[in-house]
Design a protein around this nucleic acid. Structure first.
Lengths: 197, 197
DNA sequence: TTTATTGTGGAACATATGGTCCATATTGGC
DNA sequence: GCCAATATGGACCATATGTTCCACAATAAA
């Protein structure tokens, strides 16, 4: 449906969207100004509005992109992991990267969106719900694999455990943002894992 | 240190602070405008600035107030609870009130602040850290009581379990904001509790 | 009653915000 | 080369922001 007429884009949509996502991720929606975005994306205002429609729509694109990337990564890591259980361990421990990184913890873009907007903005609430659902799906696959492999009792509800993992991860990310150190987070992670086995 | 000279205040500082807190709690810092605050507090701009210094300082007052109220409530509820374990159960289940309420889930003001500002604003990061520490203290008391009462193994580290509870609660609150229903939350809470026993 | 001190209302401020518009530039098709 | 179609740069806009300031009001002390 793309007409190959007219002046071609001078930027790569994927690249600039990635740049926008990084800014929103680091600063949140309201803390991010159009100026921030234009600089990071290296775009003129017209191009941005023409290509993405506006700030909120761009944000929604970023949420979708973030979910795509993360869900894809999760499934790839799960496929590559020696076991479902080890994948889950690795998943939870990945929060330690947040505090180890030089920049301030950014949390999870989707949960940040949930926290910032809650149900206040229906379109975003829907994007958030859809993304969370996808996260849950990926983690549920891991739980089910761990159940098949005997590391988690097959009698437990995989869906519930997946929800628990999503919730625990978002809790951990917030703690990281709140200033918790690596040792504290490790302690929490151990307890989180205990509930699964 | 209060000189009883000059024109007296026409408002009750405690009342207007409570009103401000409710607004910040419901809408977050950036989503709250001075106008919102002035209307809710029923104050003139001058009075607000004279009494609280400005938006951010008012916000910090609100964080402190929120922590005071919540920590006080937790200790009172713990004292009144039939057991430490029952208190912890009740504490976690209180997240269900968020989704049952007619208004949109507000989460925890302090965790919202952590999420919105992270380490970006040192003064607020410090307020957040201090408040989280107080929450942890209250929950640690509950854990220790449950340990004395035989509901939690005394061999486990009470501090770590308290951190786990703080993290789990903030995770649950975010899930509520993200649109999780009561049943989903209940499922998660059950798993959270399993890790303690 | 005068004076010192503090609070209040509202005007005014500089700035930053997200968003729009149009002239111009660059391409593909005829 | 011409035309239709699309992209770009930048000026422009209305508005909302947090904040400051000052004239005036209200109280306590002298």
């Amino acid at each position: 449906m793309i007409a190959n007429v007219g002046r071609p884009l001078e930027f790569d949509p994927d690249t600039v969207l990635e740049a926008a996502m990084q800014v929103f991720w680091a600063k949140g929606y309201e803390h991010t100004s159009m100026q921030d975005l234009l600089v990071a994306m290296n775009l003129s205002k017209s191009s941005l509005y023409q290509a993405f429609g506006g700030k909120q729509q761009l944000y929604q694109h970023c949420i979708a992109r973030y979910a795509d990337q993360l869900v894809g990564l999760l499934y790839r890591e799960l496929a590559a992991a020696p076991s479902g259980w080890r994948f889950i361990e690795g998943f939870l421990h990945s929060v330690l990267d947040d505090v180890a990184a030089p920049c301030t913890p950014r949390g999870c873009l989707v949960m940040n969106a949930a926290s910032e907007f809650a149900q206040g903005t229906p379109e975003i609430a829907q994007d958030v719900a859809k993304s969370v659902e996808r996260f849950r799906g990926a983690l549920q696959s891991a739980v089910e694999r761990a159940q098949r492999e005997g590391d988690i009792s097959p009698e437990r509800d995989a869906r519930t455990l997946a929800n628990y993992l999503v919730s625990s991860m978002s809790g951990l990310k917030v703690q990281a943002k709140a200033g918790a150190d690596a040792l504290t987070l490790k302690g929490i992670i151990e307890v989180v894992l205990k509930a699964l086995s």
